[in-house]
Design a protein around this nucleic acid. Structure first.
Lengths: 127, 127
DNA sequence: TTAGAGTTCTACGAAGCGTAGAAAACTGCA
DNA sequence: TGCAGTTTTCTACGCTTCGTAGAACTCTAA
């Protein structure tokens, strides 16, 4: 139950980008604008119905990715965890399902850029 | 197009476990046995139809995870890459979709066991 | 207390997956 | 060379997820 659809991901990207909790309406507008900004190839400036956005938000809430304040009238939605946390958790999930974790890590490290390898060294040093 | 269903994963696990290429029939038998070995809770010893296994294998082939020798009559199937390679690639995929790769790596490293951290240090040294 | 904004309910179509029958292709043997 | 058994392909159905949104319900402000 980890993977996201295209629209779900777009919504999460907006929630992750903005620091404030957002309403469904705000998100719908942002979605229209960001997909319009894509220009020519592929996506066009779609005006989604607000109910569509709300459905997606509910699904994301059920998946535990989004939290909503029910107190305020236009409910406000925000990501439960940062994108970095979420992504890192995903990576652990992928890794976790492997019996040969060390081998996986070896392959993973093997195909990491030099800059990132340096970053990793630094991070590991600080433990 | 990366995620696998339950049966697809079970088949991949068998292909990854065995070093030899396997036929659909062999796999069906192994599936029956391994799910029977699961005992009581959950799965029971399901006898799948061979066509089911073949369908799954075709889908896995289309996804690029499995390769088949068409020359021999009972076609023989094998995993394209090792489980470790595949998993590592998946991790890169997850990481790749993030704009803040370094932050993700930081979180990832932060929640790695001490033993694995040591492994990583060793691996990074060898670059 | 009511109109309008917001939310929930329900639903449909497409795609992915588990499942497998029916039909086609191939092989070895008589 | 033609059949019988084995193997593969074709087709399909039901279930779930996701994009999408109308319809109906629920608030809040005036």
């Amino acid at each position: 139950m980890a993977s996201l659809g295209e629209l779900e991901r777009a919504v999460m990207d907006l929630l992750w980008a903005g620091q404030e909790a957002a309403t469904a309406n705000t998100l719908r507008d942002q979605l229209a604008r960001s997909s319009a900004a894509q220009g020519g190839a592929g996506h066009e400036g779609k005006e989604l119905a607000v109910t569509t956005v709300l459905t997606v938000l509910s699904r994301l809430e059920k998946k535990g990715l989004v939290e909503r304040e029910r107190g305020t009238r236009p409910h406000r939605y925000q990501a439960v965890s940062s994108r970095a946390d979420h992504t890192a958790e995903l990576m652990h999930e992928v890794l976790g399902s492997a019996p040969d974790r060390e081998a996986v890590l070896a392959r993973f490290i093997g195909s990491v850029s030099e800059g990132e390898a340096a970053t990793l060294r630094k991070l590991l040093g600080h433990l």
